[in-house]
Design a protein around this nucleic acid. Structure first.
Lengths: 208, 208
DNA sequence: ATTTTTTTTAACCACTTAGTTAAACCTTAC
DNA sequence: GTAAGGTTTAACTAAGTGGTTAAAAAAAAT
């Protein structure tokens, strides 16, 4: 049991570099990130970066992949499941806000880097992880046909849901100023949104 | 009348530089933008940049200010007006989506640059232009008290509205992939949202 | 012990960056 | 004309940039 080779966060140099890179890339983006700063934060020499990770590009790509793999699968699982629609919406919002609360940098990182290098993402990083919305669309249509919810185009519904979940994290600093909140109040506000967004959406879907 | 000094888009060097800087800064952000590229796009020598605009920082700041002044005032006017709540919501969504459709880069530019240099924005650029939500909040509370809409915290309502308007522009490339749309389809989709978002919100606010 | 392999380092390279300089080029005024 | 002003340029600088190299230090294998 006291074997030092068990794996609770084995703090190898390679990992320290990766963690430092993760910090710097998420805070400053590909362009703003400097290899020297990553080296400094990892407490090592700059040449070591290139020993473990051939190039900035490669290092960046691994960080990006890790970030996407942290967020996408859980969300994808919910949206592609066969849960009844209302339960699915509840779960989706809860899962999404939980995950992002723990890694608030994720949405802005993904979005701004997609905007600067679309090819890289769609060719290399995202391919299999992107959720398929077909099941969700079919469910919405069925519930409309059954008179359980009012008519709505499922594409707009899903964009509305994702918007309300993701945007507050993306626009955090602006919202803080707009609503005059401190960091603590904002955390509570975002936590509240799990309930508020769910209520808002289900209320909107009530049949006429 | 044939006076060359009338002002329909007088294409002075200074302006050409500013336009080029505008393009480059909005596409690549402060870090990604290079003075050389701005000079090239303006069709002039790099030294001219520093003749007209002292530094990259200064040039950036002017571009940023121009962008904010293009978006904020109209939005602010609507939200601070005394229009009845429902009409205000309709106008807000229409105005927002119209403005952003014509300048789709605005939300992501503002947000990602705020996240990288919060001081700059809140100290120097935004100060007076940020909308005051108090009037809106009071209206929401009044309508709730009068039983015209269901109970909702006005802070969440306003964040919901802004989210649904802004996010689709910010996440455009991801939405395109997610929903399998071409550029044309996406344009139509975003135009549709003026109606769809309005309907969605008013439906949600219907009293029980 | 001594080879061999993996880690780590300091010093360096070629290139790009924002920003400067000093001289030439225009206009326009006198 | 020519003097004065603003405008434009090519050539440069100093400080980064990502990335390499060759050799030392440490660990592992024999």
């Amino acid at each position: 049991m006291d074997n030092p080779e068990t794996h609770p966060v084995q703090d190898t140099t390679e990992q320290k570099i990766f963690e430092a890179a993760h910090e710097v890339f998420t805070q400053k983006g590909m362009d703003g990130a400097k290899m020297q700063e990553i080296a400094d934060r990892a407490g090592i020499n700059k040449a070591l970066l290139h020993y473990y990770y051939r190039s900035k590009e490669k290092l960046y790509e691994m960080v990006a992949r890790a970030i996407i793999n942290k967020a996408m699968p859980a969300i994808r699982q919910v949206i592609e499941s066969e849960l009844p629609l209302e339960e699915k919406i509840r779960r989706f919002i809860g899962t999404y806000i939980d995950i992002i609360s723990q890694n608030p940098y994720i949405p802005l990182f993904i979005i701004s880097e997609i905007n600067k290098h679309p090819e890289r993402f769609f060719d290399a990083i995202l391919p299999a992880t992107l959720p398929r919305p077909e099941v969700f669309f079919r469910q919405v249509e069925e519930e409309i046909a059954a008179g359980k919810i009012r008519y709505i185009k499922p594409q707009h519904l899903i964009v509305n849901i994702v918007s309300m979940c993701a945007f507050p994290f993306i626009g955090k600093p602006m919202i803080r100023i707009l609503l005059g909140m401190g960091p603590g109040e904002l955390r509570i506000f975002l936590e509240e949104r799990k309930y508020e967004v769910t209520t808002f959406i289900l209320a909107s879907l009530r049949p006429e």
